[in-house]
Simulated assay, not measured.
Amino acid sequence: MHRLFSTFIYIIALFGLSQTVGCAPIASDADASIEHAVEGSYSGYLSYDGKYSIVSSIHHGLALWDNQSNALKYQWKHNDDAENLVLASHISHNNSHALTADSETFVLWNIETGDAEGYWKVKDSKVRDVAVSNDGKHLLIGKSSGVVVHINLASARRLEFLGHQQKINSVDMSPNGRYALTASNDYVAYLWDTKSGQVIYRFNHPSRVTKVALDPQGRYAFTADSKKKSVIWDLTNGEAISQLQYIQRQFIFSAVRFSEDGKWLATGSPSRHLTLWNIESGEAIAQWLVAPRKNTRPKSSVVYSVSFINNNKQLLTESSSGLAEVWSINQKIKG
């Protein structure tokens, strides 16, 4: 059954769970919750404004949800004779197109019509992560071979970025498709020009780089490795603005999003944690725990994606529990 955000509150049990980031307390409940997958999901992605969710699950297959109207908008398939196990997806910044990928194929979808505008198959390696630009004009595909492919659909130009030496873990792209941020097991993240393939900045890490994200307005980049270095970079000069402050030796991020006003960074992790950070200082401001996936022992859930909504007053998450959840950002914090 679908539950409206405004009428349902999902309470998370926190007994026995300890604080994990700095001094920020962990909040115990969401403002509201809606079920997108009955028995949990394989993957999920939220549009930048939180209007849409892409969810890959057993019962609904590949689904696009309209979070404003609380409705299932489309059900898509990569192949009629397959389980459509989509593990990577992305929605363009202007909500015109979605790009979804299983390990061997990727498909471009028109969100207005629901139609597939392109279908491609990868032969030499597996797809690891994807991104799509506004109006579906540019596609970015990160592969297990370490190659990142940029496709300009208007010109049919295909550029292979060969700067990485090992498999790709995460990719992102500017809304206009001109710049790519890519991360690999080779301990490096690169910001590069998709027109020329030229590296603009190289971000070095002491371990494999597992997650990257670009601020859509071109102000910041975020890179994080598998141990303890997670940095917010100034894209005007390539210098570090701050490093996220946490005490764990390892802290993996599965979701990252910059706020539109440039003040905050929101992250999600495979350990249910949702955290709000101050971009300038790298300090954790607030923490939450998303609902666990049903019938998991110990209770667990991966935060797949996070968005700032309602003029940065709330956060919206999509997680492997199959739930989209809304979280209030304390007004005192916002001030």
Rank of each mutant, 00 (worst) to 15 (best):
F222R: 05
R202I: 01
A221E: 08
Y179N: 02
G197Q: 07
N204C: 05
V209M: 04
S207R: 11
R202K: 15
H205P: 03
L153H: 06
G163D: 08
R178Y: 06
Q217R: 12
D193H: 06
P206Q: 04
R202W: 00
L181R: 04
S155V: 05
K228M: 02
S196G: 09
F222N: 05
A224Q: 08
K195T: 13
Y187V: 11
K195W: 03
Q198M: 06
L159A: 02
L214F: 07
L191D: 04
Q198W: 00
A189L: 09
H205D: 05
F222D: 06
L214C: 09
T182Q: 04
Q166N: 14
N169Q: 12
S170F: 02
N204L: 14
H164C: 07
D172T: 08
F203D: 04
A213T: 11
H205G: 04
K167D: 11
T223A: 10
N169V: 00
L153F: 02
Q217F: 13
D186T: 10
K229N: 07
S196Q: 12
Q217A: 13
F161T: 06
G218F: 10
L153K: 15
R208Q: 12
Q166W: 12
D215A: 11
K195A: 14
I200P: 00
D193C: 02
D215Q: 04
K228E: 08
R157Q: 13
Q165Y: 06
G218I: 12
T223F: 06
S174F: 10
A156I: 01
Q165D: 13
F203V: 06
T223K: 04
P206A: 01
G197S: 10
P175G: 07
Q165N: 12
V212K: 04
V212N: 06
R178C: 03
G177V: 10
S226L: 09
V209I: 10
E160A: 11
A154H: 05
H164K: 06
S155R: 09
P175Y: 08
A154R: 08
M173R: 01
K195E: 14
H164Q: 06
S226H: 02
A224E: 02
W192H: 14
E160C: 00
Y190Q: 09
F203P: 00
A180M: 03
R158C: 06
K211T: 12
R178T: 15
N176H: 12
L159G: 00
S184V: 04
T182A: 14
P216W: 05
K229Q: 14
Q198D: 13
S174C: 07
V171K: 03
R219F: 05
L191T: 05
G163C: 09
S170G: 03
W192C: 09
V199I: 15
G163L: 10
Q166T: 13
R178M: 10
R202N: 03
N169A: 02
F222P: 02
S207C: 06
V199W: 02
S174I: 10
R158S: 08
R202E: 15
Y201R: 07
A221Y: 11
K167H: 12
D193M: 01
W192Q: 10
I200A: 06
G177N: 08
Q165W: 01
Y179M: 13
D193N: 15
K167Y: 15
V209T: 11
L214S: 08
K167E: 14
K228A: 14
